[in-house]
Amino acid sequence: MSQVLHTPPPTTAPPAAEEDLAALAARHGLSVSGARPSLPEYVRQLWARRHFIGAFATAKLTAQYSQAKLGQVWQVMTPLLNAAVYFLIFGVLLGTKKGIPDYVPFLVTGVFIWTFTQSSIMAGTRAISGNLGLVRALHFPRAALPVSFCLQQLQQLLFSMAALVVILLAFGVPPAASWVLAIPALVLQFTFNAGVSMIMARLGAKLPDIAQLMPFALRTWMYVSGVMWSIDQLVGKHSDLPSWVAPVLQANPAAVYIDLMRFALIDSFHASQLPDHVWLLALGWALLAGVGGFIYFWKAEETYGRG
């Protein structure tokens, strides 16, 4: 037995000995360390780690303001201050609000929903490259990281939404049954964000430079997504625009999720301002990004430790 079991020394191991090791491993049912699991197995592993994903997201969220005197109050204060700045610039100074009823709720909803997508993607880009220590120390399906960061942003958004409800009521928007639609809209947006984050996480792991470019790409995306202005009105005002501009602007996923939320929450935002088949669009983007991003991320699972 011992004859077979000995390990050949490194350098010039003959082919026979090489087979020995592989055969020995096979005979005792050893598996290759660090091999990528199959897709269903990967999903199962990820599901098994759901408590870790949740705990990690919450921990990151609370750690964020733990040194501040006001503590978790900042969870609500930060988005409110953000909204105030945008109101000052776009509402008061630039006068974008012309013709938009309930401009403050319109703007604040847009800013919050956009921030959710933006921060998720930014965090996703650095999910692997910024946590190499964790990736090189512990075992878990790596998709747990981008998903966890998106979950953290979702929790952050829920704080913002609480503030948003106060703003809505303060500006005289009545509570309505349609507010329930916010939930499916958020679920779809979360799926979309998580999918894009996973794509960016893989790209960012290979090429950390992407994290430098993302703020510019995201800012451009924000300005074309109708966060502070109404795509609907822009199209109405400039009838000389080519006919494809409006549908393209409106089909952009960020615009779809923002407008869905406005439609759900603000009574003066009518269904006519939404593009056709808006729920289908929202679902399609979510599935495309969610499933595609997950598979794309999984394909490089075993390489993330390399950095």
Binding site: L21, A22, A25, H28, G29, L30, S31, V32, S33, G34, A35, V135, R136, A137, L138, H139, E302, T303, G305, R306
Partner: peptide, 14 residues
């Protein structure tokens, strides 16, 4: 531990 990919060769574990 399977945390760092190998360039050549294999590591088998139980």
């Amino acid at each position: 531990a399977g945390l760092l990919p190998v360039e050549n060769g294999r590591i088998y574990t139980d």
